[in-house]
Design a protein around this nucleic acid. Structure first.
Length: 589
RNA sequence: GGGGGAAUGGUGUAAUUGGUAGCACGAGGGAUUCUGAUUCCCUUAGUUCGGGUUCAAGUCCCGGUUCCCCUACCA
């Protein structure tokens, strides 16, 4: 067999080449690599952001460089401190640690203002006093060139004066803007004299009322990167058209700069590279869609376990590791891929299968009574049964659970008239109760609606612990096809269990229907109030791992992976189903 | 009637930069199993199309097709 070779994606290869060539300094020095995650603090992070965070953090870590968390807080009208806090929390939870202090674009407003003045002085920017609509009309269209503003060639001193007064708050919103003087006939719309500053008379969450002008994204972003010494400014595909502008602004500042220049030395010029954003079937990454789901009450909030926000995944029980695995799995390319939601589910199954301690919980209980238990004596007898906490990992140890006359089993594990391939309980059939005894169904009762109310069985005392009975006279050992989970009724603890399904019924919500709300899955949430748990689950036990986020997670045997919800209290346990187990029986049906 | 990107099994990705198209997931089959889980084994199926260069093309050249993005005082 061939050795597994480490393959490097196109961004890694590009950085390798840059390092080798000495693009950022001394050739071979890997530690210069600096990346950043630049969220706008105007909402919650989603799984798509996780890909970007992990890419940037991963690169910095791999090369021994730096990773910055920088808030792009250039629009006071939309941004809030609360989002800053939630974003920091999410980034940390994902396992990405940023270098030094958290950074803010607003820390650089003064520097950006100075550079803007420099561009005006160099004749590369001007104040435009036209109303929005006029500017828009003059921009032209995709196929027609734009027309220059009448203010385009106004004297430098005039622009300088107006710009300063814009800054000082002398004008109302929309009165005028600062524009770069580039090319009104460019086939790239971004180059048709883009706006650099607009007037926004609003209170900023960090700078308060200091500023009355705020920089636009294209002007600000590259400068922020430059100031921080970012080498690789990574962003998504839709910014490819912006790269010429990103470069133009830095080049404009560097124009006529150099040793002995009155403007000063040249500033650092980062490299912008674009990769495709993450898209997942049966979801939508649109912030607008997500906000609508929350605002209109289709979900309980931004952290609803059905949401694809990082907070939603966390509450659902996903681990940081599972999201890291996903990011690794989908890779980095420029191809607009659609990742199957099934892959996301497989990642958390893979992680939790390795790590989650097992428990027995009956979600939809029916009573099972063992009629020959305590025959001729003690019907209340309880036997303690040892059961492994993890079948593949002995280090998890084992626990003892009670077994007695009255138990609960899963409603779907009994059928009155079972088909041949049904390996579970039915009249006259024998099954193993996991780590308990083998039982044979002798009778059952129904209510007037035909629902099974109770199942009666006899047990075989020779199968204690769930072990096979001894061989008969001919040396043959009796066999059972099915093993059921169960809970001892008298000691069972009640719990609420929330089962989640996909939020949307179609691969691309809103694509065909036109409205994503029409594609919502009406059965995406099912709340079970009377689940029966083995008593060991009520409080944390020593076999439970130390999850980095402190959230308790389990596999409920034969059911799936579950975590303790934040709504859970000692008096009322609440579990969320993170993912079901794969179920080849259900698939057969 | 403009500009910028991208196309490899069902899905997501590799291919030492011109030299055996590989990996993972899924799907199908089998083995093991005190979870119809896990684990293990086998099978399945691919270079967007048409030309060209070459001993040799996923890779280079020419032409076509399809998909995504771009006309916010948002980022």
């Amino acid at each position: 067999m061939t050795e597994p070779v480490e393959t490097r994606h196109f961004i890694q290869q590009m950085i390798d080449a840059d390092i080798e060539r000495g693009q950022w300094g001394q050739a071979g020095d890997r530690s210069v690599v600096t990346t950043r995650f630049p969220p706008e603090p105007n909402g919650f992070l989603h799984i798509g952001h996780a890909k970007a965070i992990l890419l940037n953090y991963g690169l910095a870590k791999e090369f021994g460089g730096k990773f910055n968390l920088r808030f792009d807080d250039t629009n006071p009208a939309k941004e809030e401190q609360a989002f800053v806090d939630s974003i920091k929390h999410d980034v940390q939870w994902l396992g990405a640690t940023w270098d030094g202090e958290v950074k803010f674009a607003s820390d650089y407003f003064e520097q950006m203002y100075d550079w803007a003045c420099e561009l005006i002085r160099k004749g590369l920017a001007y104040v435009d006093e036209q109303p929005v609509d006029d500017i828009r009309a003059q921009r032209g269209s995709l196929k027609e060139p734009g027309k220059p503003s009448p203010y385009r060639d106004r004297p430098i001193e005039e622009s300088l004066d107006l710009f300063e007064r814009m800054k000082n708050g002398e004008f109302p919103n929309g009165a005028m803007v600062l524009r770069a003087k580039i090319d009104m006939s460019s086939s790239n719309m971004n180059l048709r004299d883009p706006l650099m500053y607009r007037i926004v008379n609003a209170t900023h969450h960090r700078t308060g009322d200091t500023w009355h002008i705020y920089p636009m994204y294209d002007w600000a972003h590259g400068l922020e990167d430059s100031i921080e010494g970012v080498t690789n400014s990574l962003c998504t595909l839709e910014f490819e058209d912006h790269r010429p502008l990103y470069d133009w602004f830095i080049d404009a500042i560097n124009k006529d700069r150099g040793p002995d220049s009155p403007w000063g030395e040249k500033i650092h010029h980062p490299r912008q590279t674009e990769f495709s954003r993450l898209a997942i079937s049966y979801t939508n990454m649109s912030k607008r869609y997500m906000k609508q789901l929350v605002d209109e009450g289709h979900v309980s909030g931004w952290d609803d376990p059905r949401m694809i926000t990082i907070a939603g995944f966390r509450r659902r029980g996903y681990t940081p590791k599972s999201l890291q695995m996903l990011a690794e799995d989908v890779g980095i390319t420029k191809f607009n891929a659609l990742v199957d939601m099934g892959r996301v589910e497989n990642m958390i199954r893979e992680d939790l299968n390795d790590r989650a301690p097992r428990r027995m919980v009956v979600l939809d209980p029916i009573k099972l009574t063992i009629t020959n238990w305590g025959e001729g004596g003690d019907e209340d007898r309880v036997e303690m049964m040892a059961i492994p906490n993890h079948p593949q990992d002995e280090s998890y140890g084992q626990r003892e659970i009670p077994f007695g006359k009255e138990l609960y089993i899963e409603r779907e594990d009994f059928m009155e008239e079972p088909p041949k391939k049904f390996f579970r309980l039915g009249p006259g059939r024998e099954v193993r109760l996991r780590a308990g005894y083998w039982v044979t169904c002798t009778d059952y009762t129904k209510d007037s609606d035909g629902n099974i109310t109770e199942v009666f069985c006899t047990y075989d005392p020779q199968t204690k612990g769930g072990n096979n009975p001894p061989a008969d006279a001919e040396g043959k050992v009796r066999k059972v096809k099915g093993t059921l989970h169960w809970v001892h009724a008298p000691s069972a603890v009640d719990a609420e269990v929330r089962l989640f399904d996909r939020l949307y019924m179609v691969e691309r919500p809103g694509k065909k229907s036109g409205d994503h709300l029409d594609d919502l899955n009406p059965d995406s949430l099912q709340i079970i109030s009377g689940a029966k748990c083995e008593a060991t689950i009520a409080e944390r036990t020593s076999d439970e791992p130390d999850w980095v986020d402190g959230i308790r997670r389990f596999q409920f045997e034969r059911q799936g992976y579950f975590c303790v919800d934040q709504d859970s209290t000692p008096d009322k346990l609440v579990f969320n189903r993170t993912a079901s187990l794969r179920d080849s029986w259900a698939k057969q049906q």
